[in-house]
Design a protein around this nucleic acid. Sequence first.
DNA 1: CTGAAAGCGCTTACAG
DNA 2: CTGAAAGCGCTTACAG
Lengths: 362, 362
Amino acid sequence: MLQLAISDVLATMELRKKIGIRDVAKAAGVSVATVSRVLAKADYPVTEETRKRVTDVATAMGYVPNLLAKTFATSRTDTIGVAMPVLNAYYAKMLAGIEGAATEAGLSILLTIVGASDERREAAIDQFVARQLDGVIICSGAKDGPLRRPPEQMGVPAVVIGQQPSEGYVTVTVDNRRASYEATDHLVSRGNRTIVFLTSNSDWPDFRDRLDGFQQRLAEEDRATGQVIEGVYDEAQAYRAVTKLVAEQTTATAILAATDRQALGAMAALADAGLRVPSDMAVVGFDNYHTSEFVRPSLTSVDMPADAMGAKAVELVCMAKTAGAEKMASVVLEPRLFIRQSSGSFDNAALLAQSVKSLPSA
Amino acid sequence: MLQLAISDVLATMELRKKIGIRDVAKAAGVSVATVSRVLAKADYPVTEETRKRVTDVATAMGYVPNLLAKTFATSRTDTIGVAMPVLNAYYAKMLAGIEGAATEAGLSILLTIVGASDERREAAIDQFVARQLDGVIICSGAKDGPLRRPPEQMGVPAVVIGQQPSEGYVTVTVDNRRASYEATDHLVSRGNRTIVFLTSNSDWPDFRDRLDGFQQRLAEEDRATGQVIEGVYDEAQAYRAVTKLVAEQTTATAILAATDRQALGAMAALADAGLRVPSDMAVVGFDNYHTSEFVRPSLTSVDMPADAMGAKAVELVCMAKTAGAEKMASVVLEPRLFIRQSSGSFDNAALLAQSVKSLPSA
DNA sequence: CTGAAAGCGCTTACAG
DNA sequence: CTGAAAGCGCTTACAG
């Protein structure tokens, strides 16, 4: 009985033990080298017979290759590290772009959210480097300090998305100045002469550029005046700022908000103050939130192609892998102004057939 | 000259070659075992002198441990795999919860977005298993098919977030039926007697439960009637459905939408039809989108604690690592109804001091 | 407290 | 076409 119990345990242990390439080799009567070749390199010259035997035995035994060992032996991780400050709508869109392009290229994603902390960002990069990843993508946050090491000391190909106070990095950015210029132009060309620019902190590169574009367009216009309200970081603060603006009987007829979040807060304030958008006050935002199309009135917004930026960054990392890191070059994408603020921006004439059921009243 | 060139090349190569534990050991005059102990186990008994010598030499040489080798040697990856269907606001919130808890526990995240494809989900799990990850978190999508292998055959601790047609898995879910019951109760208690339930597909578990909760509450009310509109998946379809409803002179005074996206589409339709929310038609949604607070009127919504679900899933995986996978048990979280639809839900009396600058007109 | 050595499970020149 | 063997860079019983 004891004997039996022990053999049971052994059998269980046998089952538990992961079967490796050696077990497959033994069972198939070939060398581990052959098994490795059959399983890992589709085009390696092997007899059809051996190939079949090996694959059959491997599947029969339920062999699962240990990617850790492979990765270690080849020092190719097929993984890129991604460091992001937060996971809001903007970065989620960026991450989706990164993930899609990475999967396409057969790469996995190691993700770290580092907050606004330069320490944690550096720690994440340390981790990526120590893990011998094939590349890293660093997504800039508004208040980033400079990266602590130059790109050539990273040890892996690195791409930065967004503006960054560090020198020498390959970056994927968007022309915020141009975008802001266009958005301001949209407002000016519709007859607005006093425009408020609602923003957070113009020390941050993207927001500095948005301010620049705003000012640049206004500078071209004779009778136009701009007013800049800084220190507005979220909806609630935008709400308060605009409520105050209205209470002070502003002469402004338009608001350019540096983000859609601020724009939504502004619109809420205008609605609560009984002002109509855009007839009493036009509002334009940045980021083109998905919901911006569906608020009423819908919001004209500058679409930041965060997903395209993410995909581009992956493309650059892949290029570095094949052609060498020195082949990478920074790229600047163009944002697009989505003009709305007339309701019904989608086809509401063709009503879909919906299945409508009535519940019996209980 | 040639000699020099060659030595230059060698020097360069020397620089390029990653320095390993062996180089540090040689330079410090100790064994690799000692270096490993000093660098990896803080509490291992080593002379203070040797410890200092090793750490000094290591930092002087710029030694970066190869985590790949460590991981391989110990077969602890300190990484969990996360498979999600998409990266929308809901899943981004969930991912943020996962990431936060994982970082807290010293774990990295390998992320894969699998779309609505069961194939890709299985492939992602294969990848996670082959990479010997410490655990996997599978985030359910609405139209998931069952997982192809039972939990005990995964080879790693697995936790499923959300409802899933597969048996035997440890899950983290939310009580959707209860949430829907409460939301319906909110509408009924405010005097609404004919309520429309706007939903996508009641074959999907979460949406089936939301329908159930709706019906259950109505069944308790004598004079209340429910109407179910299915096949509504996004804002535009909700817009069309509600536009049609209004055109048909509905007697309903309230809409319970199965998602905030649908609710926002419904509100846009009501606004465009000249109806007021909530006086002409009340609207309640699910998901508590961040923007739902800031649309006007603001949207009452059921908050799905996606981040808490994510954190809980990580907690379970960690428990499996320490106490064994059999210690894991499914958990059900309670959603919360956020009642709004009265504007000004945040403090708009205390206006922040904003820095206001006027630009000179050009 | 320290070291020599085996081992983690693959890949891949090299030789046949 | 196939195999024996070295090697990837660590960790960790085991012995001293």
